[in-house]
Amino acid sequence: MYAQMIKSEATADDPEKLAAFQARIDAGEKIEPKDWMPEGYRKTLIRQIGQHAHSEIVGQLPEGNWITRAPTLERKAILLAKVQDEAGHGLYLYGAAETLGVSRDELTEMLLDGRMKYSSIFNYPTLTWADMGAVGWLVDGAAIMNQVPLQRTSYGPYSRAMIRICKEESFHQRQGYHIMMKMAQGTPAQKKMAQDALNRFWYPSLMMFGPSDKDSVHSAQSMAWKIKMNTNDELRQKFVDQTVPQAEYLGLTVPDADLRWNENKAGYDFSQPDWSEFFDVLKGNGPCNTERLAARNKAWDDGAWVRDGLMAHAAKKRAARVAAE
């Protein structure tokens, strides 16, 4: 999972310091938490890493939706392990964000009251078991496209979190594709489910890369800082080129009548998703925005007494230790 539509923050720092900072990045050095960094760099990273972390957490919900209905014990165990990984990714990422001077609780509150976003893909529903395949294959596949280059990002803790995350994400994508294979080779009903899942998840997956940003000033700044490594269009093209042959292998049809191999660019020509839908979902009008945020808010609110109770107990234990010394 990953972050989308992050605009880099303006920075008003000393030009000499900025130039020295840029030189470090250009030389391929990693920036570490205690190093000097421009305020814009720090703020942009907090938003990007925070949004990425939130995506992992909200991303548990559409897949969690099928854990209790997994068709076999093995599928159930694999899906549980995968969703557990997503929670673990959330932990690493919140940890990386905390090195920039923001707490996990602060970030959580910003997610819950809507000040921070998560990836829009999780505002789509998972309706059949084939959606577990499609999410792994397409959604994790798109996330990997974005995350593999981020292993080389300039901020050390983010880069190291990405290296760990990418290892697990490739397992996720394989398990998704494996589900799709079983379905595509299965009964007519299973094939129908697989095609239906591809139909529903294709364009939302293309949207995961965000609208074209080739002329964006913000994007240029983030790329100079190596917070963003490729343009959205580059990554989208790469994703389509990788995914179309996989769909063909499955015997499924990509829902795009204009999809064609273009010899000149050695890549596919394809239709753009409906960007008005993307902006609608971003604004909160997606099919599941309300439910996803409500579920996170409920978990947080219902858990308040648990967190308070455990904190109170820890404080009592500390006090008893001090008294004993």
Binding site: I57, Q60, L61, G64, I67, T68, L73, K76, A77, L80, A81, V83, Q84, A87, G88, G90, L91, Y94, R104, A295, K298, A299, W300, D302, G303, A304, V306, R307
Partner: peptide, 25 residues
């Protein structure tokens, strides 16, 4: 496993999933 994604804190989500995984195994 019904808890997945709904626990009071992230660490509990992970621990509950772990327990469920062990039991399914």
């Amino acid at each position: 496993s019904e808890w997945c994604g709904h626990a009071p804190v992230l660490e509990e989500d992970i621990a509950l999933a772990n327990t469920a995984l062990d039991l399914i195994g």
